[in-house]
Design a binder for these strands. Structure first.
Lengths: 107, 107
DNA sequence: TTTTCATATGAATGATATTTCATATGTTTT
DNA sequence: AAAACATATGAAATATCATTCATATGAAAA
């Protein structure tokens, strides 16, 4: 029961611990987008974007919906917005001095 | 300004994306502990626990305090409890079916 | 029904992070 | 000041994850 939570958290945070996936989530905050739109916005290959989208869907961090030949991805705001706001709060409150913390170019 | 947030989130979540560090945080929820106590609780080598404690301190996810030859580590509850509760909420609400999501033994 | 467009997927390569072991530092006790 | 204890740290070995490229699938347009 305790190990379960550790495992769950580990999967959860591993999913978030990737710059491409984070950038995807940030873009989807604004509005739902197709794979192509995301690839353009992130300046990344379509293949790479797709590779990162599927695990995000599996974890229900985002949702998909077919629209013709496109697939439109949208955010699970409840979880993701809450996460972002914790990060912002932490970095504002606990990492005010650059270079020694999460905030900016540390370690 | 946008790239900054991505970077910040990436560091933040990478810090959380490790089973040893998560287990440390979960143990510190109960009460502050020394390195040795943590090593015993996690059944891990002292060296490994130490290696994981320092980045957690740097990021201010935990705090240290000297007490004789020991060092007592304690949780930054504001940030960490909030995080855990998001994970619990997400896994309860969005991953009810085992095996396909974050919740349990999926991928 | 062939071509085109949007997206997905497998497998190899390359990059990063974790683990372990040996040893160093620093504090207290004798 | 030597011994003992608690913790930290460096570097090598290993494991894990991301990226890329080639190709597959599937829907719509011609």
């Amino acid at each position: 029961m305790k190990l379960e939570l550790t495992k769950t958290c580990y999967k959860f945070f591993s999913m978030m611990a990737n710059p491409t996936r984070i950038a995807v989530l940030e873009n989807l905050r604004r509005s739902p987008m197709s794979v192509k739109q995301l690839a353009e916005a992130l300046q990344q290959e379509q293949s790479m974007v797709s590779h990162n989208l599927s695990p995000l869907v599996r974890c229900r961090f985002i949702n998909v919906e077919r629209k013709g030949k496109k697939r439109i991805y949208s955010l699970n705001s409840e979880t993701i917005e809450a996460l972002f706001s914790i990060v912002e709060n932490h970095s504002r409150k606990y990492c005010p001095t650059m270079g020694h913390c999460i905030g900016r170019r540390g370690r």
